[in-house]
């Protein structure tokens, strides 16, 4: 069995949640695997020690050029160190999407992304499970790993594994040339908005099912009647119907309300990734097979354009 590596994201000395999720994913591929964690950055001794509490082996790759995780630089670093036929696990987030596909080309290995489960390895075949059409159907996808694989694992689906303590191995001296044609400049923080939905107890959250900008008014009326705030999914912000600060999800805000009303939202993992704290989730959707009904507590199969005004009426009567 090929060696399994997990790339560890970290910031301010803290391991990202994905670190122990990738360890769990590796165990699902091969229960007896001794997983190697890869940590890149500048001045990363503390992070490496933390990773070594859970991983058998931790590769420390310390270099000025890696002080920010620019995927192009990280790729070069990994290429000079990884053995052929490695299985490399990355989180399927904005970093993994940047690094994974190109890394698999350069390693000449198989690539699968947004993997939600594994069914082990048989010979040279790694059996994975993916979802398509925002989770309406699943697929078995088999990867030929005779030349290794890069696998982007969906964040939040594997329960963090416990792991066993191990050792840090300093690989910094073995790096080759790290020059690339893409230079990181800075991170600009998202702007604050007129409401802070991260503080709201009750959210009326609007998705593409609202169909038209003019219909948003009914969402605000319902929210007002309930004493809630209005949030939304990404397409509503893309269409410039609501400000970015109201977007829930991995590329928006992480909210922790008591009650979350998902109105005309399909329930993609990037959206639900921003709903934390185990709220009571109500989903209203006209498609009875919408994946949101899998994660909601209570569901209503209805057209929101009719349902919202009626609900608002009744709430106002209270």
């Amino acid at each position: 069995m090929a060696q399994i590596f997990a790339y560890i994201l970290h910031s301010n000395g803290v391991l990202d949640d994905s670190a122990l999720e990738l360890l769990a994913a590796a165990k699902k591929i091969d229960d007896s695997a001794e997983v190697t964690a890869i940590v890149t950055g500048k001045g990363i001794d503390d992070v490496c020690s933390k990773a070594a509490e859970s991983f058998k082996s931790v590769w420390k790759i310390d270099n000025e050029a890696l002080s920010y995780p620019n995927a192009e630089v990280v790729r070069k670093a990994l290429l000079s160190l990884l053995p052929a036929d490695s299985i490399v696990l990355l989180p399927h987030d904005t970093f993994g999407m940047d690094l994974g596909p190109g890394l698999s080309v350069k390693l000449d290995s198989a690539f699968a992304a947004d993997v939600v489960d594994f069914e082990g390895v048989e010979g040279n075949t790694l059996k994975t499970i993916r979802q398509e059409f925002t989770g309406q159907v699943n697929t078995h996808v088999h990867c030929d790993i005779s030349a290794g694989a890069v696998i982007n694992v969906r964040p939040g689906v594997f329960q963090a594994a416990e792991g066993q303590a191990g050792e840090v191995v300093d690989k910094s001296g073995e790096l080759g040339d790290l020059s690339v044609k893409r230079k990181f400049i800075e991170v600009q923080e998202a702007e604050a908005g007129e409401v802070d939905i991260t503080k709201s107890d009750v959210l009326v959250s609007i998705g593409r099912g609202i169909e038209d900008e003019d219909n948003l008014e009914m969402a605000f009326e319902l929210a007002e009647a309930m004493g809630a705030d209005v949030s939304c999914s990404r397409p509503i912000v893309d269409a410039k119907w609501l400000e970015k600060a109201r977007q829930v999800g991995t590329s928006g805000k992480t909210v922790k309300p008591k009650v979350y009303m998902a109105m005309g939202i399909s329930g993609s993992f990037q959206h639900m990734g921003g709903v934390k704290g185990n709220p009571f989730i109500v989903a209203v959707n006209k498609n009875p097979k919408a994946p949101i009904f899998q994660v909601a507590d209570v569901g209503v199969e209805a057209d929101i354009l009719e349902f919202i005004p009626e609900l608002t009426e009744k709430v106002k009567e209270l």
Binding site: A112, T139, H140, C143, A283, F293, Q294, D297, V298, G299
Partner: peptide, 20 residues
């Protein structure tokens, strides 16, 4: 192709939402 889609299937659903 080294990555092959074998089939489509409907996942075993958990409890899911209580439909009103």
């Amino acid at each position: 192709a080294r990555v092959k889609r074998i089939d489509y299937f409907v996942p075993e659903m958990g409890e899911g939402a209580e439909m009103l």
